[in-house]
């Protein structure tokens, strides 16, 4: 980046874009939590795993076998299939909350002692072993999220084609189409 510092603001813009996206992400996540309370039972799926239900577990393993080409016929679900629900719970819900907490903790360092970010999230920094560690974990979270996106997009497209039910159009229309 040549020229005077006063003529450039590259990192400033990158950080601004990140923080703007982060606030939208946070508000969106809060909205999603609200929806889990007022929406139907599908809306609660990614927040609550029926881990005490043996039937659900057997269906998780059924899905696993389906992905390993060990089952010939997929099961059809109106909501998430149990395997997808499990994945979404860990790699979306937990991860998103983790990114939110570490992200706002990092943000509180700039916002300063006594800011609301510090009051709400400042404790995260000593709890995770210091500022450097929070940066590293926040960064690791990004990689986990990117890896999950790969799997998630692939699985959605594949299921749309292979399991004879709509997935991608469902995201927009809200209707699940069964093709047989």
């Amino acid at each position: 980046m040549p020229g005077e510092a006063s003529d450039n603001f590259l990192m400033g813009y990158i950080r601004f874009a990140h923080f703007a996206a982060a606030y939208i992400f946070a508000v969106g996540l809060l909205g999603r939590v609200y929806w889990a309370f007022v929406g139907n039972h599908h809306a609660k799926q990614i927040f609550r795993l029926p881990i005490t239900n043996p039937q659900w577990w057997s269906e998780v393993f059924f899905e696993l076998r389906w992905y390993l080409f060990l089952e010939k016929t997929p099961k059809k679900y109106v909501g998430h299939n149990p395997m997808a629900q499990l994945m979404m719970f860990f790699f979306f819900t937990i991860l998103a909350v983790g990114m939110l907490f570490t992200g706002f903790a990092l943000y509180s360092e700039g916002a300063g002692l006594g800011s609301w970010q510090d009051t709400l999230f400042g404790w995260v920094i000593p709890a995770l072993g210091g500022s450097m560690q929070v940066h590293n974990l926040h960064r690791l979270g990004m990689w986990i999220m990117m890896t999950f996106v790969l799997v998630h997009v692939y699985a959605a497209i594949r299921e749309d084609i292979m399991s004879r039910q709509s997935l991608i159009s469902t995201m927009i229309s809200g209707w699940r189409m069964f093709k047989d």
């Binding site: 992905y67 590293n136 960064r139 990004m142 990689w143 986990i144 890896t147 790969l150 594949r158």
Partner: peptide, 25 residues
């Protein structure tokens, strides 16, 4: 290992696995 080496390894492995899985599918 740092976040980037773990992340790149994970994304690379998963990417390759997806390609293989897609081919088999």
């Amino acid at each position: 290992a740092n976040a980037d080496t773990i992340g790149k390894a994970a994304a690379g492995t998963v990417g390759a696995a997806i390609a293989a899985h897609a081919a088999v599918s």
